[in-house]
Design a binder for these strands. Structure first.
Lengths: 141, 141
DNA sequence: TAACCTGTAACAAAAATGGTTACAAATCGT
DNA sequence: ACGATTTGTAACCATTTTTGTTACAGGTTA
């Protein structure tokens, strides 16, 4: 598995919570569907909890969504599982040579362009709700 | 340095090639501006070369752009330095449980949403040329 | 009280990334 | 022709990130 699959797993978890709204889903049960270790699930639910997307009780199974699936977007989820919100999609090399015209201004120039690209990506994520995802999952085309 | 700064360094390199078009820029010289090891520079120039964005000659300093800066976009550069073009921006967890309604379809559903987000990002990158970057670098607002 | 669960720390394993050394082969200037 | 310089590339190390795993304290439930 390359990169960071927390985002994907978070969507998976939230989808399960919606479909099994009545049942008490333990991290063990969720881990079976995701096919990973329960601690991995608890870690991600912890991030969703701290971001205010779900509510949990220590010792009791079954996280609860704090919003309707129609009001929860992929962008909300994306931010929730980013541990450093300031860290952009693209990394910029540090310490370019300040004595070079290019090195002096490359970082600011890159930041401008990268930021626009990231914003475009985020705008797209903000237009897909968890409800939309449920549609795609439960009724695949 | 977090993540992957090859993209940023590639833009830096190409910007240097444009500003010093007459001079023969060795990887040593470029490395001084980027502030890294010359081998790192040669590796990235190698990727730009294989992608057809520059031309180089073994043993002779000075890569040459194969297109005008007005016709080279950030998206071209982005693709050039991705070693696995099939690898998306967001990772999707492998082997979800096929016996679960969610696990069964989550991958396809995620793929659809993630692909749209990535496309939006790429569209933005495709609208910025190396020439635009030179403007931002040489004449900062 | 016994069984179960969460939250979290601690650690291992694997992968990605960047930096470094080394060196063969190509080129250039004289 | 020769020596200096350069590219291209392999090999290796260190660091960081991510995931998986074990362990356990403390809360909850029947």
């Amino acid at each position: 598995m390359t990169g960071n699959s927390r985002f994907a797993v978070a969507v998976h978890i939230l989808s399960l919570l919606v479909t099994q709204r009545d049942e008490r889903l333990s991290s063990d049960r969720i881990a079976e569907s995701v096919n990973t270790n329960p601690v991995v699930i608890r870690r991600i639910i912890g991030m969703l909890n701290r971001a205010g997307l779900v509510q949990t009780m220590p010792g009791v199974a079954g996280a609860r969504l704090t919003r309707l699936p129609e009001e929860l977007t992929l962008l909300d989820i994306y931010w929730a599982v980013q541990d450093d919100p300031k860290e952009g999609l693209f990394a910029i090399h540090e310490h370019p040579n300040p004595d070079c015209p290019v090195g002096q201004n490359i970082q600011a120039a890159l930041q401008g362009a990268f930021c626009r690209a990231q914003t475009a990506m985020e705008r797209e994520l903000s237009q897909v709700t968890l409800s939309d995802m449920m549609q795609a999952i439960l009724f695949p085309a």
